[in-house]
Design a protein around this nucleic acid. Sequence first.
DNA 1: ATTTAGGGTTAGATGGGGCTAAATCAAGTG
DNA 2: CACTTGATTTAGCCCCATCTAACCCTAAAT
Lengths: 225, 225
Amino acid sequence: MLSDVMEDYLKAIYQLQRETDERIKTSAIAEELDVTSPTVTSMLDKLEDRGLVDREKYRGVTLTGEGETVALEVIRHHRLLEAYLTEHLDYDWAEVHEEADRLEHHISENFEARVADALDQPTVDPHGSPIPSADLEPPERPDGESVTEFEEGDVVIVEEVADRDAEVLSYLADHGVEPGVELEIIEVAPFGMVTARSSDRDGTVSLPESVAHHVRVAAPAEIEQ
Amino acid sequence: MLSDVMEDYLKAIYQLQRETDERIKTSAIAEELDVTSPTVTSMLDKLEDRGLVDREKYRGVTLTGEGETVALEVIRHHRLLEAYLTEHLDYDWAEVHEEADRLEHHISENFEARVADALDQPTVDPHGSPIPSADLEPPERPDGESVTEFEEGDVVIVEEVADRDAEVLSYLADHGVEPGVELEIIEVAPFGMVTARSSDRDGTVSLPESVAHHVRVAAPAEIEQ
DNA sequence: ATTTAGGGTTAGATGGGGCTAAATCAAGTG
DNA sequence: CACTTGATTTAGCCCCATCTAACCCTAAAT
């Protein structure tokens, strides 16, 4: 049996691996989970003992297959919960993350299955993030890329808004940046800020680099393949 | 902030108090929660420090007003979850308890409110147990009494089936003993076993004293007041 | 009033998860 | 190629919830 905290570490390592392709460093995990480095080190010891991470001292960790499966299970729970809360319990897009974060460790296989049934086996959550399938096979890397990769004049469709901060998400929703909307890129500033026009709102919206980075979009043509 | 485990202790003490009117003994709590007595003693120390129980060493505890409020909150969560799971997620009467037990500590006020809304502010759970109101005022003692208090020939309505064992509940459901059904008492054996005929099934059903004790019923006349 | 049975409490250990301070390693710099 | 810098690990501590073993209190029985 794994503790909630261990599941959180595995999930964090998984998410960090999606971003970098490199071994994950102690300090990155510490920052992600808001704990100190020594705490991370000692937890990595335990995860290594259980065969959930591959570790090279002083050089970071990667998940083993088993560790990845656990991470995918937790993420499946999380995203199913987010979807269920928005669709059946009237939750707002911005507030589901926190609730799902607490519940994800405490639902049974049975609960997971019933929620998935109620939603008709969904494949994405309300933020456009892919929900791992029930078999917990590592999912494909999704289409599209960060909106920061595009240029003035490009027209793109928002695929995913991966930010976890409720305030940021509320702001984005208010300014028409949600999965499914069309954005026309107006400007990409040298310091990374993206300004765009949403098909959903009048006026424009500007996103600092740190926010824009979490907005994954695809060119319409790319989608049709 | 209270830990999950502290909440469990307060809930257990509350439930035990409903049954006895006396101070609750260490050993009773230990049995209820399946831990050893020393473990209970040390937890009672902590609960006393926080003003949640009144304690007399060697003589047991009672809940303070504050402790009772916490217990009621947990029980409200538990019973709302049970009701929600059966009504909206296709759970069976018998299997909700376990799931609710794990989730009850991890839902927010917001979640509680949305679930209560979805169920239209229910007042009883699927077992007929009263759901504490949102203000967490100590509820009235419900009508009726244990079916063991009745006699051959009495006709009663089942109000509550308070057993927590899934196997027992399945058995009872299969034999027509659920909240709302009418029972005609056929026999009360000297060792406490109750035999009855359910309005819901052919044949009779016999309940050993330990099970019958958890079946609260009311005489039809009593209900109409 | 003394004894005794049985439960309650104290003592001390364990494992989980966290911290700070000190030591150590990896890498880039002079 | 030695050195400095910055991150990582080790060492040692804390609190929580649990256990077993040992001790002690209460109440009932003699």
